Computed example of a mutant assay.
Amino acid sequence: MNTKRAAITDVAAAAGVSRSTVSNYLNHPDVLSASTRERIARAIAELHFVPSDAARKISSGDTGTIGYIAFEFTNPFSGVIADAIERRALETGRTVLIANSAGSTRRQLEYLDLFERKRVSGIIIATLEELEPRLEEMKRRGMPAVISGRRSTSDQIASVSADDATGGYLAARHLLDIGRRRIAFVGGPFSVKQVSERFDGASRAVEETAGATLIAVRADERSMNAGFAAGVELATSGSAVPDGVFAVNDLVGLGVVRGLASCGVEVPRDVAVIGFDGDDIAAVAAIPLSTISTSGDTVGETAVDLLLAELGVPTREFPTRQRIVEPKLVVRPSTVGDVAPVTPPSVSGAVGRSTTSVS
Rank of each mutant, 00 (worst) to 15 (best):
A14R: 11
S18N: 14
T21P: 07
V22M: 06
S23Q: 01
S23V: 03
D30T: 12
E38L: 14
E38Q: 14
E38K: 14
E46G: 05
L47S: 04
H48C: 15
S52D: 07
A55G: 13
R56Q: 13
K57M: 14
S59V: 14
D62V: 11
G64H: 01
Y68A: 13
S78K: 01
R88F: 04
L90K: 05
E91W: 08
G93N: 08
G93Y: 08
L97S: 07
A102W: 07
S104V: 12
R106Y: 13
Q108A: 08
L109H: 09
I124R: 07
L131V: 09
I147C: 00
T153H: 08
Y169A: 05
L170P: 01
L170R: 06
A172I: 03
R180S: 13
R180K: 09
G188D: 07
G188M: 12
F190G: 10
Q194G: 14
V195A: 15
S196R: 05
F199Q: 03
G201F: 03
R204V: 12
R204N: 04
T209W: 04
G211T: 10
A219D: 05
G238C: 11
P242S: 02
D243P: 02
V248A: 14
D250F: 08
P268Y: 02
A283K: 11
A283W: 10
A285S: 13
A286M: 13
I292N: 04
T294F: 03
G296Y: 04
E301S: 14
A303V: 02
D305R: 11
L307G: 00
L311H: 11
P314R: 03
T315V: 15
T320Y: 10
I324E: 08
E326W: 09
P333I: 04
T335F: 05
V336E: 13
V339A: 14
P344S: 07
S346W: 06
V351P: 03
V351R: 03
S357W: 12
